[in-house]
Structures are given as structure tokens and as C-alpha cells.
Write a protein that binds this DNA or RNA. Structure first.
Length: 729
DNA sequence: GAGCGGCCTTTTTTT
DNA sequence: AAGGCCGCTC
């Protein structure tokens, strides 16, 4: 009985109803994780289901870990045999065991986006196409991703009209896939796609897992794509004990292939299903819910529902329009300071949410200037840093010599005088003789037109790799990496460089080694392969320590599943580059409303909505307008403040602390020339940097650029088309 | 051929 | 922040 005593009646029903398909529609803050964890505990304790027969899939490692912890707490018992993890980690595990059936070796590597791009570039070079805009690696990459996530073949997609027929893309796609197989590598999508292939081609394997996974639970079901949907259907097809938890209003990953139909059509796919609606919100004050609802209710394709709460109405939500991003940041930091003083809040209580990672900059700056500690969650990921990728590339090659992407990465790292041209020659030799790049290195002496000096370097490099490949089975990989780093002299080189960046890199490498030691301490029996897989699938949100007393800065997407007493949802204007500019069609408009909804419902006690009238992007200032949200939002629960007349408080607060004055002589101030151009020596005023004197004027194509020495901020390069530069007489 | 400095562009959101 | 590109030097 004690297991269910903390649940409300709907939560209880959805926990107890273990058999058959279950759709649990769980609004924000309605106890979704609570239901999932209780259900798993209930299955184990009451229904005597073996933990190894339960599969629970989430989208983030963080969510998975949280669930593990809570289940442990409920059962007072560690259940290691539970299958619980992200989609990608679960299927990576299945593939490690079975991938040889579909033509991979068990030590396959997982390629991230940078690796993908590198392959795509190789492919484009090999195929010798005329490169135009349609062949940008990034757009090819997203197209490949789209195709893979759809769980249809390229042909099917073309026939159904989902994409245009594009022969060049077809060739690239096929060649890309061949390269991955040759390198014994999978991209993120392959982890799912190849699992699906495995099940399709080997029904006995599918059956094996169908029998293992007697109960399947899926978190954030609204964000599954067609491929994940199909995998769930395949695995659960036999027992049909599928419980999915989700909220169609929080589906914010359409661009990643998430198909909201998965949740909207669950009833059609599983006609015998039970539907439970968790509509009581335990998280937020009523005013916050009303505001969130007033926006989301405008979405046409959603299940009709409205959250309710027994919580108090609380303070009204504040909507603020500021003049620019700097003032927006100023306002927010001012409010944080006020709230900590008036309402006795800690910095941990605050979260600043924005649309794109790059937007954290202004907030960081102002927080810094006010001595407030903060943490940026996500952003540039640790494992995507250059120095980390370089070191990891060595490890990847040690376990998988076919990984030519990693090999190419390290062939001239640290610099050993091997350039593109030499690599190209080796690659050519390899493809002619059907060798992997690694084997090509071994035969370096047979390759023509390479200088003897370089042959020597390459064969030394090969010997070095060989030495560590042999060494890796005799010592722990923590020792292995330490020796390797010393051997390569990476530490020494970075120290000698002596710049801020290089010392940072040095620190990061130290951090990496700590991380490896930590990993080995926690998983003493696991191998280098396991470590690399762990690294490939982890994100910064997963590592985030919430115990420190700091303000949290994160994207709206990363904020899903989290809650904070005070939340700032920033950048509310539409029409600007980083925000809601994609509202041109109804579908994207709906997704933006859902994103707003997710952000707003993170708040427990107080919600601030902020926007800026003007925002700079790539040096350009654009005007936004919040009219759409203003017309939709319910003003009854809102305090509205227009501060956009405050023009320059940001600039005032951001002058260098010790004021440096750069001397320049007024006497050389030039007159405006007849053809309205700027000249050396001319006195000017910049909208942000103030007064200055032109040092140099030059042309770059049609663009006019100036070097200007400003008295306030020193020398700056100015692109005329991006700013207003006023001539002073 | 390789490497380096300088300058520009990129990019929504993530497993 | 980091990769691409150009022009320069060794």
C-alpha cells in the first residue's frame, strides 16, 4: 500500500494499469516522472516482474539517471538489471551484441556531427561535383538525418513526394553510408536505423528482444520520431505492454524528426489502449499556468485540455519590452538582485532561458559585472572541444583502425609537417589498392611522389600507433592515455604556446584525464570501448551539478523536465533571427508556441517574459515585434511594462572599469569628402562605441571597412554596412 | 609543400 | 569558438 500512498487517483490508476497499451497524457508539472518510477517499482514489487524484463526509454541520460535514483529510493534496493536509458544508449547496447550480423564489427565507433561533416566533405571531394550552395555539408547532413529519421528509404520518400528527387544527393547519401561502413562507424541515426534493420532482417533477434522486454515504458513520447515509433512498436508488438508518457503541448523536436502524430494517433495504433490524463499541476502558481495556457490554446492540432492547480494565484506574470538585448540582460540581473534581497532567494532559484546558445553572452556579461555566479548549461560541449576531440581521436584509432576520420584528425596532430597534399596522396593510394588509410600508412614506402623526409615521419607515426595498439591490452586505458599524452608532448607544446587559450586547453585535457579516472572508478570492469560510447552519448545537461548557488543559463530546449522558482523566458519578440522567425507557416508557429509553453511552465513562483525591440545578429540590428504574443496572451494575469524608450543603459554599464583613454589628435580630423566617403583621419561617432578617429579605410568587394580608434574602447574594425557611423565635423 | 597569421562566416534548438 | 580561405614566408 505504501508504494501508492503519495499518488492522486489518476496517477494511481495509471500506475496500477500495467497490462496492455497505456497512453498517459501528462501535462507539465503533473507528476510524470513520479508515475513512471512508481509504475516500474510497482511492476517489480507487486507484479513480481523481473527487472531485466522491463525496458524504460528516455531522451536524456539525466532523465534516465533521475529515474534510476527514484526507483532505488522507492524499492530501497538497487536494480541494476533494469533496462533503463536513452533510446540511443539502449540500441547501442543491443547493436554491440548483434551488429556483426549486419556487417559491422563490435568495436564500431559513434560519429558525432563534426565527424559526419568530415565524411560528407570527403565524399564531395571524391565525387568531384561542382560545389554550389546545395552541397553545403551542413545541409547535406540535415537531409541525411531527415531521411534516416523517417524510417523510409530514399526512394519511398521521393515517390511519396516528401522530398524532391535529387540525383546528386542520392549519390552522396549512398557514398556517405559506404564510408561509414568502411570505417566501422555509425552516426546517431544509425544507432536506431541499424537496430531496425537488424530486427527486420533477423526476426529471431527481434523475437529474442520481444521476449525480454515484457514491459516497455517510454518517457517524452511526444518527441519520438517515426523510427523510434517503429522500434517501440516492433519491440512491444508481442506483449503489447507499452506505457507511453507524454504531453503533445511539449513537443519541441520536430526539426529532429519528432512526429507529433505518434502521440496524437496512439489510440488508432493501439485501439485497445487505456488513456489517462494527468491534469493537476503541482509545480506552478495559477497565474503562470493561465498565461501558458492562453498561448498554447491557439494551437489547432492539440488535444483539448487545461491544467489546473490547487496552488495559490501567486504574483502576476511580468511582460517586459526593452530596447535591446543589453537592456534586457540589465533588467533581468536587476530583478535577480532585487529578488535576492527582498524575497530571500538564492541564486539557484533563478533560470534564464533563451532560444539559442549564442544568446547567453549578454547575460553572462552583465552577471559578471555584478559579481553574480552563474552556470551556462549546454552550449559548447566539453567533448566537442578541439583538444578533447584530438585526444579522443587517438583512443578511437587505437580500438578501431578503420576509423579514418579520426586517423585523419591526428595524422598532423600534434603538427608533424604532414599536410593535406600528403594525406591526399596516401588516400589515393589506399583507394586504388583497396586499403584502409591505416594500412596505407604501413605501406608508405611504396607510395610514389612523397618526399623521403615525410615517409620517415609517417612511418614513425605508424610505429607510435602500433606501439599503443599493442600496449592497450596490457595496461589500463587510464594509464594508456597518460603515457600517450606524454609521448606526444601535448602538455609541453601547450605550455610552450603559453596563451590563455592553450592553457585553457591544457586544463581541459587534465579534466579529461580526471574524467577517465572517475569513469574507471565507477565502472572498474568496463573497457575503452565503453568509455568512448559513454562519451559519445553524454551531454552537458547530464553532468550539470545543481547544488552550487548559481544562476542557471540554458536554452528552452535544455530546460525541458526542469523547474525553478523564478524563470525568465527571454527574447519573446518574433521576426528576429535567433527567435521565432520561422513563424511563416502554421506548423512552425505551433512549435514556437509549444516552446513558449515549455519555458513558461518551468516556473514555480514567478515568471518573467522579456523581449527586446532591437537585437544585433552578425553585426546587423534588426527590429522585432511581439504583436503576435501580445494579441494572444491573456492580459488579466499579466503586468505589462514597456521600457523600450530606455536607449543606452547597457552601454553605460559596459564601459571598461578602469577608463582608458586613447589619445588622438583633433587637428587631423578630416572633412567629409565630396563623394560621401570616409577618409583616414576623419572624426566619427559610432552608435555604440562613441567617438573615434579613422585609421584606415579599405574595400573588400563591395563592402567598405574601416579601422577606427575609439577613445572609449580602443581600436575596432568596422564594416560600414553593419552600423551607423556618423561623421563629425 | 607546409605552416602561420589574419580575416571572415557560421548556426536554432540535441541524442 | 572554430573552420575555411587567402596570401605570405620558409
Amino acid at each position: 500500500m505504501s508504494l501508492l500512498k503519495n499518488l492522486n487517483s489518476v496517477q494511481k490508476q495509471s500506475v496500477e494499469n500495467t497490462e496492455g497499451p497505456n497512453l498517459i497524457l501528462a501535462g507539465a508539472g503533473s507528476g510524470k516522472t513520479r508515475v513512471l518510477t512508481h509504475k516500474i517499482a510497482y511492476l517489480i514489487e507487486r507484479k513480481k516482474v523481473k527487472p531485466e524484463n522491463i525496458l524504460a526509454m528516455t531522451f536524456t541520460n539525466k532523465a534516465a539517471n533521475e529515474m534510476k535514483e527514484r526507483i532505488f529510493h522507492l524499492l530501497k534496493n538497487q536494480v541494476n538489471s533494469l533496462w533503463i536509458g536513452t533510446f540511443h544508449s539502449i540500441f547501442a547496447r543491443i547493436l554491440r551484441k548483434n551488429c556483426e550480423k549486419i556487417g559491422y564489427r563490435g568495436n564500431f565507433v559513434i560519429y558525432d556531427e563534426a565527424d559526419q561533416r568530415s565524411i560528407i566533405k570527403t565524399v564531395i571531394n571524391e565525387l568531384d561535383f561542382d560545389v554550389d550552395d546545395s552541397l553545403k555539408p551542413n545541409s547535406i547532413k540535415s537531409k541525411i538525418k531527415f531521411v534516416k529519421n523517417s524510417n523510409k528509404t530514399l526512394e519511398d520518400l521521393q515517390l511519396s513526394g516528401a522530398i524532391f528527387r535529387d540525383e546528386i544527393f542520392e549519390v552522396i547519401y549512398n557514398s556517405y553510408q559506404k564510408h561509414l561502413i568502411k570505417n566501422n562507424a555509425m552516426d546517431f541515426e544509425d544507432l536506431l536505423l541499424k537496430s531496425m534493420d537488424l530486427f527486420r532482417l533477423f526476426p529471431s533477434v527481434a523475437e529474442y528482444y520481444q521476449n525480454i522486454f515484457k514491459y516497455i515504458l517510454v518517457d517524452e513520447y511526444q518527441d519520438t520520431n517515426r523510427l523510434q515509433y517503429e522500434l517501440i512498436k516492433t519491440l512491444g508488438g508481442k506483449n503489447r505492454n507499452i506505457s507511453v508518457v507524454g504531453d503533445d503541448d511539449q513537443s519541441i523536436y520536430r526539426w529532429r524528426g519528432a512526429d507529433i502524430r505518434n502521440i496524437l494517433d496512439f489510440e488508432k495504433d493501439y485501439p485497445e489502449c487505456n488513456i489517462f490524463r494527468l491534469e493537476q499541476n503541482y509545480r506552478s502558481n495559477e497565474n503562470i499556468l493561465k498565461i501558458a495556457h492562453s498561448i498554447i490554446r491557439h494551437n489547432a492540432s492539440r488535444m483539448e485540455k487545461e491544467l489546473w492547480t490547487k496552488n495559490e494565484a501567486g504574483e502576476k506574470v511580468s511582460l517586459i519590452i526593452t530596447s535591446n538585448a543589453g537592456n534586457e540582460a540589465n533588467y533581468i540581473v536587476q530583478k535577480i538582485i532585487e529578488e535576492t534581497q527582498k524575497n530571500q532567494r538564492n541564486f539557484t532559484d533563478f533560470a534564464i532561458l533563451y532560444r539559442t546558445n549564442a544568446q547567453s553572452r549578454y547575460f553572462e556579461e552583465v552577471l559578471n559585472n555584478n559579481g553574480i555566479s552563474y552556470v551556462v548549461v549546454g552550449g559548447i560541449r566539453f567533448y566537442e572541444r578541439k583538444e578533447i576531440k584530438d585526444v579522443l581521436a587517438y583512443l578511437r584509432v587505437l580500438i578501431n583502425q578503420n576509423d579514418s576520420v579520426s586517423l585523419k584528425r591526428i595524422i598532423n596532430y600534434p603538427a608533424r609537417n604532414i599536410g593535406e597534399a600528403t594525406v591526399a596522396k596516401i588516400e589515393k593510394y589506399c583507394s586504388q589498392n583497396n586499403l584502409s588509410l591505416f594500412d596505407g600508412l604501413k605501406e608508405i614506402n611504396k607510395i610514389e611522389k612523397i618526399q623521403n623526409k615525410k615517409k620517415l615521419i609517417i612511418s614513425d607515426f605508424y610505429k607510435l600507433l602500433k606501439k599503443y595498439i599493442d600496449l592497450k591490452d596490457t595496461i589500463s586505458f587510464s594509464e594508456l592515455i597518460k603515457y600517450l599524452i606524454e609521448d606526444l608532448g601535448i602538455r609541453r607544446l601547450l605550455k610552450e604556446e603559453g596563451t590563455v587559450e592553450s592553457l585553457n586547453r591544457l586544463e581541459n585535457i587534465g579534466e579529461l584525464i580526471n574524467g577517465i579516472d572517475e569513469f574507471l572508478k565507477n565502472h572498474p570492469d568496463q573497457s575503452l570501448e565503453h568509455y568512448l560510447e559513454n562519451v559519445a552519448l553524454i551531454t552537458d545537461v547530464d553532468n550539470w551539478d545543481r547544488s552550487a548557488n548559481v544562476v542557471s543559463l540554458l536554452t528552452l530546449h535544455s530546460a525541458k523536465g526542469l523547474e525553478f522558482p523564478v524563470v525568465f523566458v527571454t527574447g519573446l519578440e518574433e521576426g528576429l533571427f535567433p527567435l521565432t522567425r520561422q513563424m511563416e507557416n502554421e506548423e512552425s508557429l505551433e512549435e514556437e508556441r509549444r516552446l513558449f509553453y515549455v519555458g513558461a511552465t518551468r516556473a514555480k513562483e514567478k515568471l518573467y517574459l522579456t523581449s527586446a525591440k532591437y537585437r544585433r545578429q552578425y553585426g546587423e540590428t534588426t527590429q522585432g515585434n511581439i504583436s503576435r504574443f501580445l494579441t494572444e496572451i491573456d492580459r488579466d494575469y499579466l503586468d505589462f511594462e514597456d521600457l523600450s524608450y530606455q536607449k543606452s543603459s547597457y552601454e553605460k554599464n559596459h564601459r571598461p572599469k578602469q577608463k582608458r583613454t586613447y589619445k588622438f589628435s583633433n587637428s587631423i580630423a578630416a572633412k567629409e569628402t565630396s563623394n560621401n566617403e570616409f577618409e583616414q583621419g576623419m572624426l566619427v561617432r559610432h552608435e555604440r562605441f562613441g567617438k573615434g578617429v579613422v585609421n584606415k579605410v579599405y574595400k573588400d568587394g563591395d563592402d567598405i571597412k574601416l579601422n577606427v580608434l575609439f577613445s572609449e574602447v580602443g581600436q575596432k574594425k568596422i564594416m560600414l554596412k553593419y552600423c551607423k557611423l556618423e561623421k563629425l565635423s
